[in-house]
Design a protein around this nucleic acid. Sequence first.
DNA 1: CAGTGGTCTAGACCACTGG
DNA 2: CAGTGGTCTAGACCACTGG
Lengths: 245, 245
Amino acid sequence: MERANKRAQLKHNLLSLIRQGGDGAQLPPERELSERLDVARETLRRCLRELELEGLLERRQGAGTFVSGQPVIKQPQLLSFSEDMQARGLTPSSEVLSFRTTGATAKIAQKLQLPPGAPLLEIRRLRMANDEPMALETVYLSKALVAELELSQLTSGSLYGLLHSHFGIQLRSAAQTIQSTVLTEEEAEILEVPPFSPSLLVTRVAVSTQGQAIEYAKSLYRADRYRFEVNVERLSVPADDVSTK
Amino acid sequence: MERANKRAQLKHNLLSLIRQGGDGAQLPPERELSERLDVARETLRRCLRELELEGLLERRQGAGTFVSGQPVIKQPQLLSFSEDMQARGLTPSSEVLSFRTTGATAKIAQKLQLPPGAPLLEIRRLRMANDEPMALETVYLSKALVAELELSQLTSGSLYGLLHSHFGIQLRSAAQTIQSTVLTEEEAEILEVPPFSPSLLVTRVAVSTQGQAIEYAKSLYRADRYRFEVNVERLSVPADDVSTK
DNA sequence: CAGTGGTCTAGACCACTGG
DNA sequence: CAGTGGTCTAGACCACTGG
């Protein structure tokens, strides 16, 4: 057990150092830190790399390791709407438009690895940021997993938080597709924009730490209020390189 | 020099192993591979992790390391249009709509870290996949960097390839924003869709391995033909965790 | 040039898989 | 239980920064 938790523990220690330091603060040199925190330098460095990927630290060879002034997420994160808005400095809220049990269509069944027709919970919510309509979200969850989920629990807090605290389900990753579309008249009315306004359509299948498909969600974001920011890296293997005979 | 290239060399060796193996093939155990390729196991493992992130390998503790049947990119990559289409199994081509020198607007100057009014090369291209219009792309490059770039060089191959081979510029990463918009009548005509059709607007600032901002690009993709697929991970530090007092 | 992060090594032990 | 990937270590040396 010692071993498995070492990195998690280490990360906690580093996080408190980062919070203490504040923007731009320089962390102690790796060799000193590793000794102080009683881990090998390479182990420390793995944690530092993760924190760098999460945008909390900047490392410069020859210069040092610094607390990021303005954290930039370098790897896209799986965030619930609430978390996403908070990260953008906005206050999330929502209004439940419908909450019902339904049967899985062929498509959703396939995405959630359930038999077609399996009972699903469908939650449709208007998501707001600073009390302004931002997105229209429809979430499907297997009824078998969240049978006792009640409407009243949804009014406050994030669904992901609920899944974790009440059902022991922790999400690990998701496959998302991002498309452009125009809103129907009904959707436009709910989002308080003119009919046929442009919208970002985000479809998501989220998977638990156990590897089980948990959530299928479709979100329509107001194009005038929402945009994705993605940092992309240039990895190895340019296509030509591979095809070189 | 030995040191710096070790991982790159190693990766090449692994790539040829992967290509030989084909879908689903199992790689030799790490201990054996590291000996055969004459590197420490940890060094090998770093490369394997990168290849896993690039979706070329799957590793299962206790079972082994396997060539991915259907590579899934786990980290969004910086790809030129040509590379992107090839990765999607389509044949890219393009038509240069305009090619001219202009002065940097305040906004573009800021993105490219140039003084306002600095001379820029503006390249506007219709990008096609399997000879069908796919996107309308406008690229801005500092004239100072690519003074000798000629129109004739653009007709074949990718701009990124040109930058590398003719100007020694290698890209490292980019910041992208993804928005939803509707096309103007002129844009719609070029892309051969009805006016005011929805479109994905992708804005990109690409940075070289030297850390210099090189390219500012705006691309309008046909919403009916193009979508983004992004895999997102759930990282540590849920917001609550931090705010816990 | 002292000090920093970056790479690489050889080896120990842990955790999981799949017969 | 043999074999696999996953974690961690202590230490050497490289590459870069910034006075």
